[in-house]
């Protein structure tokens, strides 16, 4: 029999609902070119290194931050009890602000069919605080994650957040491939051996 690599969660989800987040981010490609300083490199967050420290919200030179939460729909379980949307001890699974994790109510919960819900981030409201990212990775599939949006980012010489990031999660990427979207790239085997 042929030898194959072990089967993991990523493979499982890849075989399920596949909706590419890259499509959404691809729409800003043109903006990126016009907005960048003409350099060949841009700053980006490695979502597998990010430890959700909250600094992306407050340390960017922009207010609100150029860092936003993005959603890899192909990794999402479309769960009713979403760990990224609800407070862990929410009283009820409804959209009341008192049940929501997000401090700005930036995540929209949309009913699809019993018992599945879609979670969409309203970028204008998102401040990049990573609270939902922490909830999603602690209780769910880790589909919510942070990215620096290049239609907003000033591509500073030294990213003010990268300087402070305790996880060294922010580094330069070639401007031709400006995003590290979960589900769209495979992190190193050393960091994920599921």
């Amino acid at each position: 029999m042929e030898r194959t690599k072990p089967y993991n969660r990523r493979d499982f989800l890849d075989g399920g609902m596949r909706m590419s987040l890259a499509l959404g981010l691809g729409g800003v490609g043109g903006l990126l070119l016009s907005n960048s300083t003409g350099e060949d490199w841009v700053w980006q967050i490695d979502p597998f290194k990010c430890t959700q420290c909250g600094r992306c919200a407050d340390e960017c030179v922009l207010t609100p931050s150029a860092v936003k939460c993005v959603h890899a729909f192909d990794l999402c379980g479309y769960c009713d009890l979403c760990g990224g949307f609800f407070l862990p001890d929410a009283n009820d699974l409804n959209t009341g602000a008192e049940n929501q994790l997000c401090p700005t109510s930036a995540i929209e919960r949309k009913y699809i069919e019993e018992p599945y819900f879609e979670y969409v981030v309203n970028e204008e409201l998102c401040i990049g605080c990573s609270k939902c990212v922490k909830g999603c990775s602690s209780f769910g599939n880790g589909s919510l994650h942070l990215q620096i949006k290049h239609d907003l980012c000033k591509n500073c010489n030294v990213c003010a957040i990268a300087r402070l990031c305790p996880s060294d999660a922010i580094a330069r990427l070639p401007a031709s491939e400006p995003y590290l979207v979960k589900g769209d790239f495979i992190e190193s085997e050393s960091t994920r051996s599921e």
């Binding site: 420290c53 909250g54 600094r55 862990p88 605080c129 609270k131 922490k134 602690s138 402070l164 305790p166």
Partner: peptide, 19 residues
């Protein structure tokens, strides 16, 4: 506050310790 990357606490922290 910066170079050792400790800095201030996280005002958006999700405290999971009770669980």
């Amino acid at each position: 506050s910066t170079r050792n990357k400790k800095g201030k606490g996280n005002p958006y922290a999700l405290d999971l310790e009770p669980f």
